[in-house]
Design a protein around this nucleic acid. Sequence first.
DNA 1: GGATGTTTAAAACAATCGTTTGACCTGTCA
DNA 2: TGACAGGTCAAACGATTGTTTTAAACATCC
Lengths: 250, 250
Amino acid sequence: MSAGRGSSGRDGPTGRAARRRRDAHDDAVTRQRLLRAATRLFSERGFGAVTVRELCREARANLAAVNYHFGGKLGLYREVVENALAGVRDDPTIDVPDGTPAEERLRHYIRTYVPRLAAPRGRAVWAQKLMRHEMTDPTPLAPWIAQEVILPRVRFLSEAVAELLGTDVEDERVGRCVVSLQAQCLFYLPNRFREVAFPGWRDTSDEAIAAAADHIAAFTLAGIRRTKEQPPCPARRSADKPPHPGASGH
Amino acid sequence: MSAGRGSSGRDGPTGRAARRRRDAHDDAVTRQRLLRAATRLFSERGFGAVTVRELCREARANLAAVNYHFGGKLGLYREVVENALAGVRDDPTIDVPDGTPAEERLRHYIRTYVPRLAAPRGRAVWAQKLMRHEMTDPTPLAPWIAQEVILPRVRFLSEAVAELLGTDVEDERVGRCVVSLQAQCLFYLPNRFREVAFPGWRDTSDEAIAAAADHIAAFTLAGIRRTKEQPPCPARRSADKPPHPGASGH
DNA sequence: GGATGTTTAAAACAATCGTTTGACCTGTCA
DNA sequence: TGACAGGTCAAACGATTGTTTTAAACATCC
């Protein structure tokens, strides 16, 4: 391949393009190329599955560049993660004016979050994909990423759901509803499950995503209203096994 | 490469009689120890993150045993996957007597599926965890696993949901409801998200899991009923403004 | 008992991993 | 100008990867 790319064209001390001035701008360029390639590759395949060599090839940088600029593979990864997390820290999806009713807060969350997840790129997607990899095989940065991405959302959602249920955030029904909501949203991160299960769903237009978000919102709010009707501590009925007889809830 | 015997052919010719005689060292025993350790490690950390050495150490087998018995690391992985998939092929969660009403079919699915996912082990858990890894970084077996695990469930769920919606399985609302349902269930696979988000959810007793399944069932059926009220092709209303202006930038 | 075939054991294999090295180039500043 | 610092480069480092090899231990058959 083009592994030995530049050397062939630039080896001559008088390479024409290589003649351009080397200002302080130039060094930052490879740094940024590395960061860009690393963001894509790490979020796509995870920390362990990406090799430094592949990364440098993609960024058209020398093999030693990663260690020089970032002190190592993990240092580069840390910077990638920091960039991605910066995008979820000031997060419009959980930023709504005071006094907005709970139902509207949830609707707003879903309608801004789902399009962000379904987008081909963007910091929200990167952060969530990085976290998805940290969930399955964690790096030393896993706890940090998880807390940073998850906790603010859970707090926001729990408060809204608790308000809708007319209870406090400690109620276990709140956690279950929050999980039901977040699970639905996360499924709109690009993933192979949807591709396999619904090959016809290649429509990722804004309208299709918005329609899906509307579905989740309506679906979830109905589910929450239904949950509200149930007793707070659903002491388990003992005789609940067979599917056939009329075990249709109550 | 295939100097060792292939994974599939080894059981046949004269092996059966010769087997089962060695007292101290029994071939079938180390084979099974390897399979057991591999099932645990592969489903926990994925194919790429597990080394052959670690595997053999865990199984108290020699390093060469993997290549001897399974023809290589991938051969062992293939056998692990086959075992796990055998457990989802004849699947009680989607096996329900004819004539069962759709709502009851879904309830049965959720109430049998969620406890299987939440269990610490079992073939359903292994299959689903293996697939989770195949989703994030795939091996050559990824398409096979995905189809085998996903398609039967999607078909079962789609038919039931379509019946509840009073429409056919091609309706896009069906797919969205199936995703909403399946996404909720899959969140009860042991995962770090729940641990981080809800540290208090360490209760994995049968009662707690059953209560969670009941929640999902009630939540989902309410969501489906709500979805039924909406027009089949929800053309996006334009007068749908976010809580505060400017937040829906794009 | 020797021949044959199967399983285990330890060592070595080539390939690849992340990282380090030292020469080399270029611009800056004394 | 000459020394220095910043940055790139090819090459090599030691460690670890999956796999292969070679020899020995064991069981079975003639």
